[in-house]
Design a protein around this nucleic acid. Structure first.
Lengths: 146, 146
DNA sequence: CTGAGTGCAAACGCTTTGCAGACAG
DNA sequence: CTGTCTGCAAAGCGTTTGCACTCAG
């Protein structure tokens, strides 16, 4: 999978930053892994192909891309998980299965009704992209899980 | 505020455990602080009155009470927050304001509709008590906040 | 008495940071 | 050339753990 829908080097340079090989590798790897990747997983993969790249470089790279809006971060179970934030799926939330650990996307529109109710009843403007709901997915019913 | 609605010593002994002064202090302090307390805050307060009580004892105490169901834990912004889980408010979620940092309770029934939709459309059985929604409360509108 | 519970101190896992050198622009 | 970025190593943070001692029952 490629992430060349946007001109990333140009975007980076427009901000006065540099596109280094390390950053390319980090972004490529994250992209190749699909989504919902922990730093540990990403680093493991990066390190397998490029042993010279340091863990801190991965952290800094992810943070860098996050600030550019190319990557989004969520916190699931204490550890940070990252994914490419394509223009295709802008704001979305996460369903995390306590059984199999799988992470699913939750379309934002499903959340809209709920968010509207929060705003009406509580005056609370909820972030549309930082919600993590844990529970059990179809395959991991609470019955066979617990 | 007192937490003597249930006979805590009896409950503890029924499980074969002991009610130590440290545990009493931890529970009393947590209770006195109301709710949504980080371990750091709780320890600070405990330590002010009882310097001999160790941080690890607070952690172990909280964990102990959590297993007994007297206390519930949530993870907000990387740090664990604790609160008394009275029978009065069994399952509830949290609204965390990114502006003032305040944490509000979200009645479970408001979440019910949404949870039902998740179940119908995704076959996902969401936990009713582990949801943390961040955003801006009435006082901290995104406009004046950012 | 006895072992559940404590204080101490050290280690843990994840993340961040200071620094000197390296390389993209 | 310049100063952004890297690798290294060390520290930071919140939390957990091993140990010998203590005290609730």
């Amino acid at each position: 999978m490629s992430h060349t829908t946007t001109d990333i080097p140009a975007l980076i340079r427009a901000h006065g930053y540099r596109l280094t090989p390390q950053r390319q590798i980090i972004l490529d790897t994250l992209c190749a892994m699909g989504g919902h990747v922990t730093v540990a997983e990403l680093f493991e993969r990066v390190h397998a192909h490029h042993p010279a790249i340091d863990r801190s470089t991965v952290y800094r790279g992810l943070d860098f891309f996050r600030e550019l809006g190319l990557v989004s971060a969520a916190e699931i179970g204490g550890a940070a998980i990252y994914e490419i934030s394509a223009d295709a799926h802008p704001a979305h939330n996460h369903l995390v299965c306590r059984g199999c650990g799988d992470i699913d996307h939750l379309p934002a529109d499903l959340f809209d009704d709920f968010a509207a109710r929060l705003r009406d009843q509580f005056g609370f403007r909820a972030d549309m992209d930082s919600l993590t709901i844990s529970g059990f997915c179809r395959e991991c019913g609470p019955v066979d899980g617990a």
